[in-house]
């Protein structure tokens, strides 16, 4: 199990991989928006998106868990 964390404060602009989808390491899971810039947040390992902790439009702080990959 691997937690994906927000690399900086911002809001969730887009969910790219939904719960249940399989992802490979480096593939974007969500895209954050901070200071008018889109910041893709990739999976750090191959697996399946077990749980998304955020929804589009949610605000996250640096270090917040965004998703769990299994």
């Amino acid at each position: 199990m691997n937690e994906i964390k927000a690399s900086m404060a911002g809001s969730v602009w887009k969910i790219v991989a939904n719960e249940g989808e399989s992802v490979t390491s480096g593939q974007d899971v969500v895209i954050l928006e901070s200071m008018k810039m889109e910041i893709p947040i990739p999976a750090e390992q191959d697996g399946t998106v077990k749980e998304l902790k955020v929804g589009e439009g949610d605000f996250v702080n640096e270090g917040d868990v965004i998703a769990i990959i299994e």
Binding site: S7, M8, A9, G10, S34, M35, M37, I39
Partner: peptide, 13 residues
């Protein structure tokens, strides 16, 4: 800019 000098990623704080 409040951003990284190499990646240009923003840096709020």
């Amino acid at each position: 800019y409040a951003e990284d000098s190499n990646t240009f990623y923003p840096s709020p704080g």
